[in-house]
Design a protein around this nucleic acid. Structure first.
Lengths: 241, 241
DNA sequence: ATGATATAAAAAATCGATTTTTACTATGGC
DNA sequence: GCCATAGTAAAAATCGATTTTTTATATCAT
């Protein structure tokens, strides 16, 4: 069994984070019903905190809850990915414009730092989860001063949903290099406060990611494990039964 | 104690709905910590389903959860209302345009029916909760064919948040009449597929509602109970302790 | 008299067991 | 031979009690 939970039992928020990470990371078979007993043993927690975490994740949209029939991992649907990508372009484009108008010196400094960490994480292969974390933090920091907490909340939610698709899709090193280059260009345009160009590039960035993510929908690939060819994560997929 | 839960114990989804309704309806003191034991007795449910419902509501944004310190009703903040109203204008404006392009005959029929129910509910005073339900359903139906489930989800979430403010604000019959008139005008413009005018009116509708809702923020009014002068709901506010 | 620490009371979170509901299977009827 | 129904097994949901954490109070030292 996976070694994602090495030490003693987790706190409630740690459990939520671990479950969220594993759901977005594609370690559960999509469309499959979750086996509560197996999860309980895997994460070494009791029933109550587990069910509370699952309820929160269901409200967040990373799980589906059927009345008396437990929890289910939502299937990956092409139409839903289209919806998510489209909204990401609009929401993040809008947020970026506002962020470029509001961001100050401290934000610029933090953006450079976040970009640096992202580059470093990219150089060190076999640290998939760490790169994902830095990548999320970079995009989050980029939009942070936009001034709309609710918009940022929705953007984060869509980003998480989008990543379910992207991380299930087969890797494409050529496109990945392009996407990484765009991060640097985004920093440059943001520092130059070129609002129109920056928004255009961010939308193109999302469009390109969308093309990659589409690979997750094509032949209804089931079973968890987006980590073929990766060596960082020793634990396999979480058993469903 | 309130008679909101007349018969035997509620199912999990009913409990969630009842809590959500009472939170949006302003029956809890804002900023106040929830007393789990009191809630348990009031809704006649056990601890587990109650906690699961509270967790879902916290993920939805109608409650705040502090680590080991229970659940708290979020305070009403002027800046947050501004944020919510601004996003509502943008999201619902966008959704309306798409809905007017996509909605078919069946949708038109349903819209007329929803509007009729809303008018009827308005005529019968002392049915506050029923009017609120019809009002929500009208706005939901108006935007439903927009083609973006995630956008509709966010719109609904913002609408619920907005209503926390609106229902806490003092009533204003003159403005209320204007708002009701706008519903009819919205139907007319929607049927005529006048996209620009309809979007403009919907944004104005939200702006006017926003002016009403601002009344909830002015002097940090605490304590639940937005139903002064209403006789429909016999149960008072839910006790916090 | 004020501040800090220890103690006690209250509340939240978790656990183990029970109850209820669902899904599967086998048997009987058509 | 196929469909329907009853019975059994498995899983989910709920309950009551225990454990842990927090908060308020009182006492002691400075």
């Amino acid at each position: 069994m996976g070694a994602e939970v090495p030490t003693g039992s987790l706190s409630a928020s740690q459990l939520y984070a671990a479950l969220k990470r594993d759901l977005i990371g594609g370690r559960f078979a999509t469309g499959q019903k979750l086996a509560i007993t197996a999860l309980k043993q895997h994460y070494r927690v009791g029933l109550s905190p587990l069910r509370e975490a699952l309820n929160r994740l269901a409200a967040y949209g990373l799980l589906e809850q059927e009345s008396q029939r437990g929890f289910r991992v939502p299937a990956l649907k092409r139409t839903e990915l289209d919806d998510i990508a489209d909204l990401r372009q609009r929401f993040e484009g809008q947020a970026l414009e506002q962020a470029l108008e509001a961001g100050g010196d401290e934000w610029e400094a933090g953006l450079l730092a976040a970009f640096h960490r992202l580059k470093r994480a990219d150089e060190v292969s076999g640290q998939l989860d760490h790169w994902e974390q830095m990548h999320l933090q970079f995009h989050r920091h980029l939009l942070e001063p936009c001034g709309s907490p609710w918009l940022l909340r929705f953007i984060e939610q869509l980003h998480d949903q989008f990543d379910r698709y992207r991380r299930m899709a087969p890797a494409n090193d050529a496109v990945r290099t392009m996407l990484n280059d765009q991060h640097g260009q985004l920093v440059d345009l943001a520092m130059a406060r070129d609002i129109a160009a920056a928004r255009g590039l961010l939308e193109e960035h999302i469009r390109l990611s969308y093309e990659v993510a589409q690979g997750a929908c094509q032949e209804n690939r089931r079973s968890g494990g987006s980590n073929e060819g990766e060596s960082e994560r020793e634990g396999g997929s979480v058993p469903g039964a």
